[in-house]
Amino acid sequence: MQISLLQCQSSKDVAANLAFIDLQLKLLTRQEGEPQLVVLPECCLMFGGHEQQQLAIASDDNNSELKHSLAELAYQYQVYMVAGTIPITAEDGRVYSRSYLFDDTGDTLGSYDKLHLFDVEVADNTKSYRESDTFCPGERITVVNTPFGNIGLAICYDIRFPELFRALRLAGADFIALPSAFTKVTGEAHWQTLIQARAIETQCYFLAADQWGQHNQGSRETWGQSMIVDPWGRVVAERKTGLGWVQSTIELTELKKIRQQIPVVLHNRFAAPDLIKN
């Protein structure tokens, strides 16, 4: 299977962001006969303004034009797609940060709502992040079966919570896709370390697609370094800066070998993690 992560520099202009993704899919290098999995970053269609701007473009699952547009691209270019994140209305007036997995006909195979919300202080221009003012946390984990392996879904700040990733492994994940918009400050300090640690712990391939650079005249700055990491913790492919694709062809043979040689799931003496409902 060929895996392609798209590193973006998304803005507040939905149409421009969608056009960029469309163009990059048109330019995507493909190996004939290989199924293609594309992973887009968090907030791929709207990023860099106040979080409440997400409310203006949100709608419910059935009527989301953003969802429809990304599904149409998956169909048009015949790719399986982890479609970054888009805002989907929640019952309490906020929105879910939802990631969809589409097949190559544009059908929805599964979705995931970000569990851990980024309410933190960072030493950058934004300083205080309060995702919970706008976003509603999810209540479930997601692992989706595909013809080329089981794909677990997580989003950005989730990477700091290893219990989620152990739960995804126990639910059968072979790959874990991580659409992200890591800040430059936290990314420089922790991004690669966290991804490699989670890959080693879970013995899964990690597919981490990140935003990069300055957004909307420098109001936000993200780290980049989109990367594919194997179950041994090796960086298979990465793009540290700039826009475009990170690609690799992957077989599950290596994953099966590592799990057989070091059967951590069988050796673990701790109870399986249990998701706390809000």
Rank of each mutant, 00 (worst) to 15 (best):
G106L: 03
A19C: 01
V236N: 12
E121Y: 08
D103C: 09
D22E: 14
G49N: 05
A237T: 05
I159N: 13
Q214H: 10
L207F: 07
Q7R: 09
A56M: 03
G49I: 00
K26C: 00
I262L: 14
A173T: 07
E139Q: 13
I159K: 13
T108A: 06
K277A: 12
Q2S: 03
D124Q: 06
N63K: 09
T193Y: 11
Q36L: 15
P137R: 06
G233K: 06
S248Y: 10
A71N: 04
G152E: 09
Q217L: 04
S97I: 04
E91I: 11
L37H: 06
I159R: 13
E201L: 11
T85A: 10
W232Q: 15
L6R: 06
L164P: 00
A71R: 03
E72L: 10
A199C: 11
T105E: 14
Y100H: 08
G172R: 10
D92G: 12
A74D: 09
G49R: 04
A58E: 02
A19F: 00
R130I: 01
P35T: 02
L28F: 00
V143S: 12
A90F: 07
M1P: 08
T108K: 08
P41I: 11
R94E: 06
P35G: 02
H190T: 14
V14S: 10
H50F: 01
H215L: 07
V235I: 15
V39G: 01
D133A: 09
F270A: 14
T126F: 06
S64D: 03
C204F: 04
I262E: 13
A123T: 09
G224F: 00
I228F: 03
G233I: 01
W245S: 03
L28H: 02
T85V: 04
G138K: 04
A171I: 00
K114L: 08
G233F: 02
P162L: 01
A19R: 12
I276T: 14
E72H: 10
G242E: 10
N278W: 06
T222Y: 10
E163S: 10
R259T: 03
L115R: 11
N278Y: 07
A154G: 11
G213M: 05
A237V: 05
R259P: 03
Q214T: 04
D61S: 08
Q54V: 00
L66D: 02
S11H: 05
H215S: 10
S99K: 03
V143F: 08
F270Q: 15
E91R: 12
F175Y: 15
L252I: 08
L66K: 06
K114M: 14
T105A: 08
L6W: 05
K256L: 15
I21N: 01
K184G: 00
P41R: 09
G48C: 07
R98I: 01
S69A: 15
R198H: 03
H267Q: 15
T183N: 13
V264N: 15
P35C: 00
